[in-house]
Design a protein around this nucleic acid. Structure first.
Lengths: 339, 339
DNA sequence: AACAAAAATGTAAACGTTTAGATTTTTAAG
DNA sequence: CTTAAAAATCTAAACGTTTACATTTTTGTT
């Protein structure tokens, strides 16, 4: 079958007008039982499937929400996406997904395309927090929810994790274990998570009157390679750290890899806590302690936010969710014996 | 700005007909330089963005391809998706993604929705290999590419990995190391990968005249839990295996977890090879040997296949890609000393 | 300057729905 | 059996493009 039946074909076969057919496929009621049945039969017989694009054209809504993530390959995002998708499907929404590879240029392109396609809302972890491309969306009146990274210039709903608190908890824990030379492998300082996690680190040190030693602050870029290099750098310091805090999952990978190669022994020689739980954490010995985020919940909330905004556009104030991460103490940061 | 300018607004402002405007936004040529400029200016001034849905309505194509995966949270799929998406974007296509959670019912729903939405093609790792829902797609003339799992009843392009060969390689390697009691943790036997990987196992044993011991064949379901249980089961056998082959990544997780808890020592007491590379493989000691698949390439090829099919519908024969997996020998299956 | 051919532009229909408002049919009361 | 009200159904316009075909303008030749 190559010919696609339209609502008109159904109407003809059932001997009614297209308006009536429309009413039954949309469950609007006000159709005589017998008529409805006739129509339903016609639909079945023809194998009619209503065209969502024609529908969108008329209704000016696509029941689609766009998701923009920096890297679908980072295990954090599939979990978030799963949360979004689950809730979305329940409400009859579908998602169109794109990965920017952290490129603001790609991101801008994607935003344009999403607008062209008339997405009803956008959930974004932006590669460009200051971004003007967001204005485009605002101008079109398309609801936006920022996930994981805030958007500075514009008022949009956000669901973030309390990064400061998370890294603060981690570093404080290290301090309480007796560590004083605590290193951090930072994320890019022009991203919310990168900056805030550094802030939490600083805050903990200050609170316990430990001077911040700049040689223990390594600038990474959230990718595995920089975690690796960071660990190397710290290892070859004249005055090594006794503990390391890594600002995200991918850098944790690199870092742990380096530690192994250097035979820089976890716990005995260096304590470790990473931001974000990772699959490897419970597989290596000692098990890695981490700051863990409720990834699926983040996605679910994000969807709820766009959804609300789509349906009550008018008078919703800006809403910010700030989820508190949880410090999962395992084995990589046990008691530290001073020399 | 709440009012969305249309092609008509642009035409009016530029003092031309909408046909001419259409011509310039589609780069069809045949428009005087000066006119084009006038139109471009008008577009800019109004902030006009063409409606993809109106366009799709007329052209009967959406430049969208649907992706259906069983579980976006399984690290294999994000990599495949990344490959698809990359190639898709290059060609002006976008992807709408949905996860079935291995439920054939959900999958059928999704297929319906995808048809409604007029996707130009579908790339699917089906949760229901015998599925009739595929017929729906066929009837609409929507190109389908099956990834990772074949679709039995219908002729569709496929990109698979040579599972038989992969597990054969792995098991043969174990045999050549001197193992004779080799266990397998199977995937569901009603899925291509589950069945084929078992086949490869059998083939290797036969080839080396090792009788297949049914107590060494554990039926798993591709989820982590069953890997865990499988390892337990094998451990408590009167006559333990000396090597284990796990049929997929998630079961490998469970299996390794169990091994650690049981203190069933890798290499010394039991050799191990898993199907699919996993992040943890190179982090635990000994490093895990695995059968590895070119995940991103799978996605790229899959997209190429749908793309071709979309553009040369007529006379393309069914195409099957069978990628050969690679055995990555690391440390979990070194030489086995007989007792 | 006239003309034919080529280039540029315009007109109008079509894509498949939804929906406001008009019309017809049914129902129920007198 | 009438009739008014209620319920069911229909008509036709609109959504924003693309495109075949018609018309107008430009170009180049004589």
């Amino acid at each position: 079958m190559e010919y696609k039946p339209t609502i008109e074909d159904v109407a003809k076969l059932a001997n009614v007008s297209i308006a009536t057919v429309s009413r039954v496929i949309n469950n609007q009621g006000g159709v005589r039982k017998a008529t409805e049945e006739r129509i339903l039969n016609a639909i079945n017989e023809l194998g009619y499937i209503r065209s969502a694009v024609a529908r969108s054209m008329k209704k000016k809504e696509t029941n689609t929400i766009g998701i923009i993530v920096p890297d679908i390959t980072n295990p954090f995002f599939p979990h978030v996406v799963a949360g979004i998708e689950q809730k979305a499907r329940e409400k009859g929404y579908y998602t169109i997904l794109s990965s920017t590879n952290e490129s603001p240029i790609v991101e801008e392109e994607i935003v344009k395309i999403f607008i062209e396609r008339g997405v009803d809302g956008v959930i974004i972890t932006t590669a460009n927090e200051t971004g003007d491309h967001i204005r485009l969306l605002q101008e079109q009146g398309i609801p936006i929810v920022a996930v994981d990274r805030a958007i500075k210039k514009f008022e949009v709903d956000t669901v973030l994790v309390d990064n400061v608190n998370g890294s603060y908890q981690a570093v404080r824990h290290l301090i309480l274990q007796g560590h004083e030379r605590i290193a951090i492998i930072c994320g890019p300082q022009n991203t919310t998570p990168g900056y805030e996690r550094y802030l939490g680190y600083k805050k903990a040190l200050e609170e316990y009157n430990i001077p911040l030693d700049p040689s223990l602050v390594y600038q990474g870029d959230f990718r595995e390679g920089s975690g690796y290099k960071g660990a190397l750098h710290l290892f070859y310091l004249e005055n090594k750290p006794t503990a390391i805090f890594s600002s995200n999952n991918q850098m944790t990978f690199g870092c742990v890899k380096a530690l192994m190669e250097l035979e820089w022994k976890l716990v005995e020689e260096v304590a470790f806590i990473g931001f974000d739980d990772v699959e490897i954490a419970t597989f290596i010995r000692p098990k890695l302690s981490v700051v863990s985020r409720p990834m699926t919940a983040i996605g679910e909330i994000a969807f709820q936010l766009v959804y609300d905004r789509i349906h009550f556009k008018e008078n919703l104030p800006k809403r910010e969710y700030l989820l508190t991460p949880e410090l999962k103490i395992r084995e990589s940061c046990s008691f530290y014996k001073k020399i």
